[in-house]
Simulated assay, not measured.
Amino acid sequence: MKDYNKRRDRLKRYLLFILTVVVAFQVGCKDVVRKEIVEVEEPEHSSIEVAVEDKLIIDRSEDLSDYVVELFGVDDAATIIFNDVALVSVIMAYDTELTDDTKEMINNLVLEKDQEISQVVISNDEKTFFQIVEIMGDLMNGSSYDKYVGQISKLVEKNK
């Protein structure tokens, strides 16, 4: 019986030692991870000036794209707003086509998510998609929305 109690005590001490080592290792690893976080400072004069109205249009357009890309079968979406019209260009998933049902879902979703939109124009044209992406990139980098009004208007008319 004495041997049994000694073995049990040794096993308890051994398990307690292992548990202590594991906890110490985990705490040590967390410290290492915390020390590796590097803060990146941006230069003071690197901000990009974007007009408030342009920023609102950009944000609304990006939000709509985010909603549309969540739909089943849609791989990517780019949206640009022109007055009360949203031009939504989508890239469909492999072996998926843009059907009338999908168009109706996109239309309803956009109208539901942005009450300032009264018309949704939907395109599955890759060229239109990349034109919208390029315009949105320029707008986010500080270009004026006014600079693209003609081009956006033509895109909307072309895809109606």
Results as ranks from 00 to 15, higher is better:
18 I>H: 00
55 K>V: 05
36 E>L: 14
20 T>D: 04
102 T>D: 13
82 F>S: 05
116 E>I: 03
101 D>M: 11
111 L>S: 00
27 V>H: 05
113 K>Y: 01
126 E>A: 01
104 E>D: 15
73 G>C: 05
63 D>S: 07
93 A>P: 00
112 E>K: 06
114 D>G: 04
69 V>E: 10
117 I>S: 05
101 D>Y: 12
41 E>P: 01
36 E>G: 06
27 V>F: 14
114 D>N: 07
125 D>F: 05
33 V>G: 01
66 D>K: 14
116 E>N: 09
76 D>W: 00
109 L>D: 04
88 V>Q: 07
120 V>K: 04
100 D>F: 11
26 Q>N: 07
113 K>N: 06
125 D>E: 10
21 V>E: 01
119 Q>P: 01
60 R>E: 13
76 D>Y: 06
113 K>A: 04
106 I>C: 10
38 V>F: 06
39 E>L: 07
76 D>M: 02
91 I>D: 06
84 D>G: 04
112 E>Q: 09
113 K>G: 03
73 G>L: 07
79 T>V: 15
127 K>S: 11
105 M>F: 08
55 K>N: 09
126 E>N: 00
58 I>W: 00
31 D>L: 14
119 Q>L: 10
54 D>L: 00
95 D>L: 11
37 I>A: 11
97 E>A: 15
89 S>Y: 07
46 S>R: 01
50 V>M: 11
24 A>R: 08
59 D>A: 12
60 R>A: 14
27 V>P: 04
126 E>W: 01
120 V>Q: 03
89 S>D: 04
89 S>F: 07
75 D>W: 00
43 P>L: 11
128 T>L: 03
56 L>A: 04
68 V>W: 08
32 V>A: 14
53 E>S: 14
67 Y>N: 12
48 I>H: 09
49 E>H: 10
36 E>H: 10
36 E>V: 11
64 L>W: 00
90 V>L: 07
90 V>F: 04
128 T>F: 02
52 V>D: 10
86 A>S: 03
30 K>A: 11
